[in-house]
Write a protein that binds this DNA or RNA. Structure first.
Length: 580
RNA sequence: CGGGGUGUAGCGCAGUCUGGCUAGCGCGACUGCUUUGGGAGCAGUAAGUCGGGGGUUCGAAUCCCUCCACCCCGACCA
């Protein structure tokens, strides 16, 4: 490709709204352009990268016996009615009517569509297991798209769905899929990806893993032990907390005027946060049901854990009116002396297993000293002791006991054991050897393609631009001609360009005759891994300059004589690093 | 959805408070000349529904009403 014809202008300045590295360089390098919030066009270089990512994904999906299909983006609502998700999913599902007022939707995932497909095409145990996958547009009407391609509304996803006769077969296949994912991210050149235990949320199913590209701008918090044997999303992470019991002291009501928050109460009474109990009220958004969480003052409630326990897909903080309705006083709320059959009380182990905590008295400006769960609350039917705490950095690892570490990650892929949630609801079944019908057992496996591109960029860049791995680079080699009108530079560069194309090398040829610095800056923004500079300076010695974008080796001089085979060799060597 | 902010040439911005001539500046684009190793210089050219609608006024980018879009923080999120 000639730079003089390449569409997608490079921009010298950082775009004002871009905060993350990938967002800046995606715009500055002319990879993508915003069309509407969270909706992007891919320009030629961006498209080339995406194509390469997709090719690698296809190879690895085919390797684990996947069959590529393509399902529609626009689906009739009735299909989603079957699974119950037409109602259960919130506003991120874009619903609309066709000309006959028939309710339709833009698919945000394809469990329903694929289940519909498989139930009509597969009916015997002899055909199972089977895996179908597609690379296709998803639409999610996100409340807040952000950070360029990291969180968008429209995007390409590789989504795969496997169907099995039983759970054991699913589990075996799940392992293969896990391995395929590790190969994919390695081949994409991602420097650090962790698979971590994850919250299955509304997808259903019990077991799931997220593949996290570790980097600062990640939206998720990853909890790991120092030896990496324990790896979990903070949403579900737990720790081997130990709480000290001491002799119970008698309950005592104390006057605590104006002390509503834990900090205020602790300061007023001269105790530490860990000597207090915190009352937090949530409401199940769907049902309006009030949920009362009690946790030690130095911990935070983990909403994902609490929601899972309470059977609530979505929680929100309860308003004061709802709290008052069950006889609690916000700021001084207490699980003690509560009109309690109206509300479920979830008590975190931190509060249940500690002694003599300060808790509210359900009365303005009063708290109790010396709350002891076993004596004061245990045994009531609506009270549940559970782990609803958010893991903190340094908490003891549940496997090794070592202090847990925290980092940020971009979720570039996820895999789920779905079980029969969709197959049962949608009557996707097979006949076994005895002619007996069973719902198929399903797994699903996703990768966000554009997000993967952004994640690679986040992990592999310098101050001038991205440093693409050879496997997904928009071009393999860049040729810069400096002063093409002088000393035959242009002719030599043209000849080199033509010869490399004949060898099947993907060449980006800067034929514009711009100033050297200008060309180098553009080249850096495009991140092509290998670069050849032809100029009068070295041409007089019959040489060109050779430079790696990653700077791993010094700039070299290569003889024009035999240059083409040498460059071909180097491209192939580099490419081989990412072979399967 | 809550809070904050921004909309003026392809991009980045000034002008708005305090209404007034033909709406400016930098980058980019185009033409010519000179330049050429890390985003060159000079000269010239083209490019604007001042986010939309309504209002006030002799006169609105500027004041008022309203709608919209986009960004940031939070909430939410497979």
């Amino acid at each position: 490709m000639r730079m003089s014809k390449l569409v997608g202008r490079r921009i010298k300045e950082d775009p004002k709204d871009a905060k993350t590295v990938s967002h800046k360089f995606l715009i500055r390098g002319g990879y993508v352009r915003l069309v509407s919030a969270g909706i992007y066009s891919l320009l030629p270089v961006g498209k080339r990268i995406v194509d390469k990512i997709e090719r690698i994904i296809r190879e690895e999906m085919d390797r684990i016996d996947g069959q590529e299909v393509l399902m529609p983006v626009v689906l009739p609502a009735e299909l989603w009615e079957e699974s119950g998700r037409y109602k259960s999913v919130g506003q991120e599902l874009l619903r609309f009517q066709d000309r006959n007022d028939k309710p339709m939707l833009l698919a945000m995932t394809h469990e329903e569509a694929v289940t519909h497909l498989v139930r009509t095409e597969v009916s015997s145990y002899k055909q199972l297991p089977v895996m179908l996958y597609q690379l296709q547009t998803k639409y999610r009407d996100e409340a807040r798209p952000r950070a360029g391609l990291i969180r968008v509304r429209e995007f390409t996803m590789k989504d795969a769905y496997s169907f099995h006769t039983d759970q054991q077969d699913l589990e075996q296949y799940y392992e293969r899929a896990h391995e395929a994912y590790e190969r994919i991210f390695r081949r994409l050149g991602m420097l650090r990806v962790l698979s971590i235990a994850a919250n299955s949320g509304m997808m259903g199913g019990a077991v799931s893993h997220e593949f996290m590209a570790i980097c600062e701008c990640g939206e998720d918090t990853v909890i790991t032990s120092p030896d990496q044997r324990y790896r979990a999303n903070r949403e579900i992470a737990t720790a081997a907390w130990k709480f000290e019991k001491s002799a119970s002291l008698p309950l005592e009501k104390v006057h605590t005027p104006g002390s509503k928050s834990i900090e205020e109460v602790a300061t007023f009474l001269g105790v530490k946060a860990e000597n207090t109990g915190k009352a937090v009220f949530y409401q199940n958004v769907r049902t309006g049901e009030l949920i009362f969480a009690v946790i030690r003052g130095d911990f935070e409630v983990n909403e994902a854990k609490l929601g899972n326990l309470a059977g609530a897909a979505e929680l929100k903080f309860a308003d004061d009116a709802a709290i008052a309705a069950i006889g609690c006083v916000a700021g001084y709320a207490s699980p003690l002396s509560l009109a309690s059959d109206k509300v479920k009380i979830f008590v975190d182990r931190s509060a249940a297993e500690s002694s003599n905590l300060v808790v509210g008295a359900n009365e303005p400006d009063y708290h109790y000293l010396n709350f002891n769960f076993d004596r004061d609350l245990a045994g009531q039917p609506q009270v549940v002791v559970a782990d609803i705490a958010t893991v903190r950095e340094g908490d003891p690892c549940p496997v090794s006991g070592a202090p847990l570490e925290m980092c940020r990650g971009i979720e570039v892929g996820n895999i789920f054991q779905l079980g029969t949630k969709y197959s049962a609801a949608m009557n996707c079944s097979f006949l076994d050897q005895n002619g007996k019908s069973h719902p198929m057992v399903m797994g699903c496996y996703g990768i966000g393609v554009g997000r993967a591109m952004a994640a690679v960029m986040e992990q592999s860049n310098d101050e001038y631009g991205p440093v693409w791995p050879m496997s997904i680079a928009p071009y393999q080699l860049q040729v810069c001609a400096i002063l093409p009108g002088k000393d035959g530079v242009g002719e030599k560069a043209e000849a080199l360009y033509a010869a490399l194309l004949r060898e099947g090398i993907e060449v980006l040829y800067d034929d514009r005759g711009e100033k050297a610095g200008f060309m180098f800056s553009d080249a850096d923004l495009l991140g092509v891994p290998l670069r050849v500079v032809i100029s009068p300076k070295t041409l007089q010695d019959g040489e060109v300059e050779f430079k790696r974008r990653d700077g791993k080796t010094e700039v070299e001089r290569l003889k024009l004589d035999g240059l083409v085979p040498e460059l071909v060799k180097r491209v192939k060597q580099e490419l081989a690093l990412f072979a399967n």
